[in-house]
Design a protein around this nucleic acid. Structure first.
Lengths: 204, 204
DNA sequence: TGAAAAATCATGGAAAAAGGGGAGAGAACC
DNA sequence: GGTTCTCTCCCCTTTTTCCATGATTTTTCA
């Protein structure tokens, strides 16, 4: 069985690297590449890859969103996340949006081939490092409400409760409530920790 | 003239990509690669590349530090920074440490070849995007003192002035002074902005 | 060795955030 | 139709941060 492969990555060098690695594999058919989400979607209108290697950071939209969109439109395509970042939040979101696996860009040729083989069968592949990351990070995906996200962003922009209240046309005591909820959800005691956590979890 | 090239990058796919791209170039001789700083340094004890392509993020030490070390020991080697991140702080530090250029990993084959050619002549190469980034970011590299760095880290860890004072065996008013200096240096008005900026500038 | 930078400490007051508790209206979910 | 979630608002107290201003002692390094 030949696996039809497509790749979306805005890093030309990575595309070239993968292509060069896979060229000699008879079991893999290289369909082509895209360097952004838009051209990936337009490619899919006319072609049907078995597997898409998908980078997280794309210029027009995130690989996480693209993953969701592609899986909705073409549920039979398997998506293998590809990223420099071994970060719990990314991995979780990607898998949540229907990816079949996640491989780091420092993977070896063997790892990549194994990942493709596993995913092509419809199974899930996570490299050892990735699996460890998920295990170590006690799956705490912090879920914020719409208002909490807004307030969090404004706090990160350096605004005080009063300023935020004016901006959102609500009372400053309400802002304070949201702020307290944010501290509670992040399990921290002050703004410094809140912002630090939020930035590291890519929520800002 | 043939350029002897060596590459340090922990991303195997990128190494493979560059190798595949440069293979056909007669003017470039591929000396090999390293996936960490240590093996790069040991390679340099026995070989003399003309140009080193150097990633910023390496497992054992940062490319920024490695760049400095290599230029101190082997001043005649030209270093071309290579990174996913088009970030002012990285670029500045890399150039400050003696790099001859900085290329992003989404560079095309042509850009990469041009960069190598320019740098091989001893000139400086910055890709258009990189040059713009530096221009847009008004070259503000924030320089902190030893104590300020310490205090910044402890603030980011969620500690209050009193806690920091105890930890560092100094008065809490002193901590407050450092804190004020931090706010001034970062040109912000509160802790939220301070932490946000510091994290984004990779200072935490 | 002398100037500049850094680290230390202080006072007093204003502003903001944190901690604790309570409560009502409306939407959303079983 | 009741429960839970979200958003809204309020009270009070304590703690922490921010602002202004100033000063002394070390360190650094040219």
């Amino acid at each position: 069985m030949v696996v039809k492969l497509f790749i979306v990555d805005d890093h030309y060098l990575v595309i070239e690297g993968i292509r060069s690695l896979l060229q000699v594999e008879n079991s893999i058919q290289w369909l082509g590449h895209a360097t952004n989400a838009a051209s990936c979607l337009s490619f899919l209108k006319e072609h049907q890859p078995d597997i898409i290697l998908m980078d997280i950071s794309l210029p027009d939209k995130s690989g996480i969103d693209l993953c969701k969109e592609v899986k909705e439109k073409y549920p039979s395509v398997f998506i293998l996340g590809l990223s420099t970042f071994n970060q719990q939040s990314f991995i979780e979101k990607m898998m949540f949006n229907g990816a079949s696996g996640y491989v780091l860009k420092n993977a070896t040729r063997e790892e990549l081939l194994e990942a493709i083989a596993v995913v092509a069968k419809g199974k899930i592949y996570l490299s050892i490092e990735v699996a460890q990351t998920i295990r170590n990070a006690p799956g705490k995906t912090i879920i914020l409400t719409r208002r909490e996200k807004e307030v969090l962003h404004l706090i990160a922009d350096g605004m005080t409760n009063n300023m935020i209240a004016e901006k959102l046309f609500i009372s400053s005591t309400t802002v304070d409530s949201h702020r307290k909820n944010l501290l509670a959800k992040f399990e921290v005691k002050n703004t410094a920790s809140l912002i630090r956590n939020a930035v590291e979890k890519q929520m800002i």
